[in-house]
């Protein structure tokens, strides 16, 4: 009985190991290797990766046909990040595409081939490149920095009377750290007084939003994974207190925030793919690309519930108008 169960366990484990071992395949002669490293599986990052792969395919780079595409995902485990970076370098990749800030830093540290980073908010601050305008020999990529000035302009246009603007963000995220600095810089230009509402977990969103709602005329969510995960709580507070709730990504608008100017993560993925293709064709010294942020998202239902009337002109020019709130 004892020995059986142990033997069974061992057999299962060896079977699983064999299954995984069989999936290791070597690159056929003459095929180029495109390696893609992602930090975690997450709606925004998945969008970037999907669109990146789609763009590569459109340009004729298809896994198994003429190139080998290696996908690696750290599953959110920071300790695996350097392992993946080293592993991809050891696979003799012709190009490594790294998604997110930590992944790009780890890859740049060890890479011997050209690197294209994707969805890095502040590539200069992260030490990846020296300046946004000048191209570098071995590295280029896309920034998903939200155009916060455009965002504030949109708030001003929809709700002209807002003076005190509350910001919900998690200071532990690089994107939000960048966002809050940008907001502090631009807020006076548009006549806003910023009131900061830092949260450290999704569970904080409700109480902090409640606290803000009493003190501000409108609330803005920066590009923040923590707050985005707790968006429902913020929407609840905003509709209760009739406070307009703005966001910086389309996903939050779909779920009940009022309006956003978005970096458009699909576009970030496509741009990253385009850069990768140019690098694969031998081009070097390409300057990095920053997301344009021309996409405006509106939720009509949310506007109604928060007691805001959105000017027709904005609705007509919006990239997408949602009529329902997705639960």
């Amino acid at each position: 009985m004892k020995k059986w169960s142990v033997a069974l366990l061992v057999i299962v484990v060896i079977g699983a190991a064999a299954f995984f071992a069989l999936r290791v395949h070597n690159t056929p002669e003459g095929m180029r290797v495109i390696a893609i490293a992602n930090l975690m599986s997450h709606p925004i990052l998945d969008t970037v990766q999907e669109n990146l792969l789609a763009e590569l395919k459109r340009e004729g780079y298809e896994d198994g046909k003429n190139v080998r595409i290696i996908l690696r995902n750290a599953n959110g485990q920071m300790q695996v990040v350097p392992s993946i970076a080293n592993e991809l370098v050891a696979q003799d990749s012709d190009i490594i595409i790294a998604i997110t800030t930590p992944m790009s830093q780890a890859v740049k540290k060890v890479a011997q081939c050209p690197v294209v980073f994707g969805a890095v908010t502040d590539p200069v601050g992260a030490g990846l490149i020296a300046s946004l305008d000048q191209g570098e020999e071995m590295i280029t990529g896309t920034s998903d920095a939200v155009p916060y000035d455009e965002q504030l302009r949109l708030i001003r246009r929809i709700t002209p009377n807002v003076k005190r603007l509350g910001v919900l963000f998690n200071p532990g995220e690089a994107a939000s750290q960048y966002g809050i600095k940008q907001l502090r810089k631009f807020a006076p230009d548009f006549g806003f007084t910023l009131i900061e509402g830092p949260v450290s977990s999704t569970g904080d969103v409700y109480p902090v939003a409640q606290n803000l709602a009493h003190r501000v005329d409108a609330i803005l969510i920066s590009t923040d994974n923590t707050v985005a995960a707790g968006i429902a709580a913020a929407v609840k507070v905003a509709t209760e207190h009739k406070v307009p709730l703005y966001a910086c990504d389309s996903g939050s608008i779909e779920k009940g925030a009022l309006a956003a100017v978005s970096a458009g993560y699909a576009q970030v993925g496509i741009d990253t793919g385009k850069l990768a293709v140019r690098v694969l064709k031998g081009e070097r010294g390409i300057p990095s690309v920053t997301a344009k942020g021309s996409e405006v998202y509106i939720n009509k239902k949310a506007a109604e519930m928060m007691g805001v009337s959105v000017p027709n002109e904005i609705i007509q020019n919006a990239t997408k108008v949602y009529k329902e709130i997705k639960e």
Binding site: F20, R23, N75
Partner: peptide, 29 residues
């Protein structure tokens, strides 16, 4: 063990399970 799991190209969802199984394997032996 983790490095070999990464080499095997495990999907994001499988990596943790694989490392857990391998820990179990050592302990079980």
């Amino acid at each position: 063990l983790v490095a070999y799991a990464v080499r095997a190209g495990l999907a994001a969802t499988d990596l943790k399970l694989a490392t857990a199984i391998m820990v179990l394997l050592v302990v079980a032996f």
